[in-house]
Design a binder for these strands. Structure first.
Lengths: 106, 106
DNA sequence: ACCATGTATAAGTGTAGGCTTATGCATAGT
DNA sequence: ACTATGCATAAGCCTACACTTATACATGGT
């Protein structure tokens, strides 16, 4: 099937981690920039990045002493797939709603 | 926006809660059925349902002593909207989900 | 070689939250 | 009226985890 959406959900559930992810979605950044931007310590940032990384949501690129992180767009796939799994359910609801509206027309 | 994506993400991050949500997505059910199905106590189920409810993900319907819960599909909208922000990564799939949810609103 | 800078990991702490049992409150059945 | 059933809340426990400080490891600059 598909990889577990739970891992992605759990990674994005934390506000700090989600904020970092959203920040990286705008542009890649080294850890020091993130540390300067958010009001948590550098180790906290690194720990969040490690969590995002093991969830497949970010990737890293080393350049000298700096480690640039950027979002890994395909990391959101399990979540989107999980949501798409309810497509049939939604369609059912829509169809039932359509049926109800047809009944009201008569 | 009534609820933001963080509340929805947090509600769905817990495995038990997500399992209950997925179970309710197949069909509505009273609390006693959920309690029988999952290996946690009845209060635990009620607490998860309360969390899902305050996240806008389920609604309840009372019938005698039974309280039937069912998913509130529009509760997923904040999450879909949040994902829609990454439309550049996910254009085709997210837009389909978006279109479905807009249908539901009408 | 030395020191500063950038990052990751280790170790410890405090708190949020998911679980339990106990209890109270409706409703249904007899 | 009494009892049983279904559910929600209260209170307490306990684990997970998001933080901290301390430290180790690279790399760059002088």
């Amino acid at each position: 099937m598909h990889t577990d959406a739970g891992i992605v959900l759990r990674a994005l559930a934390d506000p700090s981690r989600r904020a970092i992810f959203e920040r990286l979605a705008r542009a890649e950044a080294p850890v020091k920039d993130l540390t300067a931007q958010f009001d948590i310590s550098q180790p906290a940032v690194s720990q969040h990045l490690a969590a995002l990384r093991s969830a497949g949501l970010v990737s890293e690129r080393r350049e000298g002493r700096l480690v640039y992180y950027r979002v890994a767009p395909q990391g959101l796939r399990p979540l989107v797939d999980w949501l798409a799994h309810y497509r049939s359910f939604w369609s059912e609801r829509v169809e039932r709603l359509d049926a109800l509206l047809e009944e009201l027309d008569e």
